[in-house]
Simulated assay, not measured.
Amino acid sequence: MLFIAQVSFAQKKWRRYKSKPGNFKVKLPAKPTLKERKNQYILETESEGVLYQILFNKTRQNNDLKVAQKLVSKELDKVRRDLRLKEELRIESNMGTLMLGLPVQGIRFRNQRNQLYQYRVLVTKYHTYHFIITKYNKILDKARSAKFFGSFKLWKKEK
C-alpha cells in the first residue's frame, strides 16, 4: 500500500513528441492527441489537472511582434466572451520574450475561480503557433510551464 502512494506522488517523465504537419518537436508529460479543424491543427494532452495545447496553422508572413500582440488581444477577448463577461480576469503578466530567436508575445491571467491561463503566440515564416496552458486550481508549477515552452523546437529549419 505504501508503494502505491509513492508511485502516485512520483512525477512522470516528460517525453519528446514530433509533429510533422507543424514542423516541431516538444516535450509533454503525456501522449498527445492531434486534431484537425479546417486549416488548423490542435495538439493537446492533459496531466495532473493541467491542459497543454499547441494550436498551429500555416501562414505566409514574417514574424512580427505586432501580429503576435494582436493575436494575444484576440485570445483574451475570446476568453472574455466565453466567460460571458460575468467574471473579471486578473492579468498577472503580459510579456514579450524570445523563443527560437524570434519575438513571442504572451499573457498570464486568472479568472475569479482562480483558474490559470497562460497563452503565448509565435509567428514564424510558415506557421503561427498558439501555446496554451490551463490549470484548474491555484498553483501551476513554473518548472512545468518552463519545460513546455522551453522544449519547443522546429525540427526542420525554415528556408
Rank of each mutant, 00 (worst) to 15 (best):
K18Y: 03
T97N: 04
L34D: 13
F148Q: 00
S8C: 08
F131M: 10
K153W: 00
L83N: 08
D82K: 12
Q69I: 05
K18R: 14
L116A: 07
E44V: 02
L28M: 11
T134A: 11
K78D: 08
R108V: 15
K86P: 01
V123W: 01
W155T: 00
K78A: 14
I133T: 11
L100H: 00
L55D: 09
K125I: 01
A30S: 12
E46Y: 03
Y41R: 07
V26Y: 03
G96F: 04
S19E: 02
N137S: 15
S8Q: 12
K12Y: 05
Y129T: 13
K25M: 06
R84H: 10
E48D: 15
N57Q: 09
P32S: 09
T128D: 10
Y41K: 12
G101I: 08
P103T: 09
T97P: 01
A68C: 15
F56W: 11
F152L: 01
I4W: 14
Q69A: 14
N63Q: 05
S73V: 03
F131C: 09
K18P: 01
R110M: 05
S8M: 12
Q115F: 08
P32Q: 07
L89G: 03
P32V: 11
Y52E: 02
E158C: 13
Q69Y: 09
K138F: 09
K70F: 02
W155L: 02
Y52F: 15
G96W: 01
N114W: 07
I42K: 06
E92C: 04
K78M: 06
P21D: 11
I91A: 04
K147C: 03
V7A: 13
K38E: 15
F149M: 06
R15H: 15
K135R: 15
W14L: 04
L34M: 15
P29S: 06
N39G: 11
K18H: 09
K78E: 14
S8F: 11
L51A: 09
W14K: 01
L89W: 04
K38S: 08
R15P: 01
K142V: 11
N63M: 03
P21A: 10
R16W: 04
V50M: 03
Y41D: 01
D64F: 03
R84W: 10
K125W: 02
V72T: 14
N57F: 02
M95S: 14
T124D: 06
L140W: 08
Q11W: 02
A5I: 13
L102P: 06
F148T: 07
R37W: 09
Y126C: 08
N94F: 05
F152R: 00
V50D: 04
N137K: 13
A5G: 06
N63F: 03
F148S: 01
F152W: 01
T45G: 03
T33D: 11
K142A: 11
Q40M: 15
I133S: 10
L140A: 11
E158A: 11
